[in-house]
């Protein structure tokens, strides 16, 4: 398992990414917008928007706030629901060569199991990324903070899917390595790290938090050194492939994650600034 000489990445359970650079969940939707702006099929993977059992309208605005070298978001997992993804979106992925990895979120083990079950027969779905780390919904972080709860969740989903199962870890924990070991033992094929850091911004004219829920998830280049430390700790702790994500803006900031042991990377917030960033990272890593 892991990185191959041709640049492809074997994540296990039959999933080989054509290259190391993917688009991070929550920053690429389901690919349909970016497909109009870039040659999306050159990339190694598309990790979709977090997908839940039922459609979610998302949080009230404002949902984004800019910070030094980054941004806070509190989108609230706006998504069309897993049935719409399976029946309406999947046919539109036919013919795409980029592996589609559906990010799944929920509030209970049953939610995640339901989503994985719905996606299991969908040929266009190459893998599942379990989002146990969303800071912007009630219970979004519960599984990500408790190694035993994370393991129970992974084992339950493992029982219903033959797809490659990636677990996206939260950095908002005391010991990310413990959670990583726990999901590895429970049957995860790979882990991705990290999701956003909990952050807050004050609207200085009013003294109130800019985001209506108070806090949101911090992303962007500001978090790259933090994410790198977390990913290094995860790489030291597990034997399964680790996918690094957090603050990548170019090939150099992506290579840092490979140096600490990640086999692949995801480009996130930088895509908002320049939709071609992931392609530039891919080309830069090949040079």
């Amino acid at each position: 398992m892991s990185g191959q000489r041709d640049g492809s990445v074997d994540l296990g359970r039959g999933l080989t990414l054509p290259n190391r650079v993917g688009l991070a969940s929550g920053t690429a939707g389901y690919g349909f917008e970016l497909d109009q702006l870039i040659d999306i099929n050159r990339l190694g993977a598309l990790y979709t928007k977090g997908t839940t059992v039922l459609a979610r309208e998302g949080n009230p605005p404002p949902r984004v706030a800019e910070t030094a070298g980054g941004m806070l978001n509190s989108i609230g997992l706006q998504n069309p629901g897993v049935d719409a993804v399976a029946t309406d979106y999947a046919p539109r992925w036919r013919g795409w060569t980029i592996p589609i990895i559906v990010n799944v979120a929920g509030g209970s083990v049953e939610d995640y199991v339901h989503c994985a079950t719905v996606l299991e027969p969908v040929a266009e779905v190459a893998g599942i990324e379990l989002n146990i780390s969303c800071p912007n919904i009630a219970q979004g972080l519960d599984f990500g903070r408790d190694p035993a709860a994370a393991a129970r969740l992974v084992a339950a989903v493992r029982a219903v899917t033959e797809r490659c199962l990636i677990v996206k870890l939260s950095p908002n924990v005391t010991d990310i390595a413990a959670v990583a070991r726990s999901v590895e033992d429970a049957g995860a094929d790979a882990v991705s790290a990290v999701n956003t850091y909990i952050g807050r911004k004050i609207h200085r004219a009013s003294g109130r938090s800019v985001l209506p829920l108070g806090t949101g998830g911090l992303s962007g280049p500001a978090i790259q050194p933090l994410a790198l430390a977390a990913v290094a700790a995860v790489c030291d702790a597990v034997h399964i492939p680790v996918i690094g994500v957090g603050g990548i803006v170019d090939a150099a900031s992506a290579r840092d994650f490979l140096i600490v042991g990640a086999v692949a990377v995801q480009v996130g917030t930088a895509t908002f600034v320049n939709p071609e960033t992931a392609l530039q990272v891919l080309d830069g890593l090949r040079d």
């Binding site: 929550g26 920053t27 690429a28 939707g29 917008e33 970016l34 702006l37 928007k49 309208e57 998302g58 949080n59 009230p60 605005p61 404002p62 949902r63 984004v64 706030a65 941004m71 978001n73 989108i75 706006q78 895509t271 908002f272 939709p275």
Partner: peptide, 25 residues
């Protein structure tokens, strides 16, 4: 407040009236 400008970040929600009169983003 806008993140990407091309529909992927879902940050720039505005309220419109849905068919049943409820607010949708």
């Amino acid at each position: 407040p806008m993140g990407c400008g091309f529909g992927t970040c879902l940050g720039c929600a505005l309220p419109v009236r849905g068919e049943d009169g409820s607010t949708v983003w």
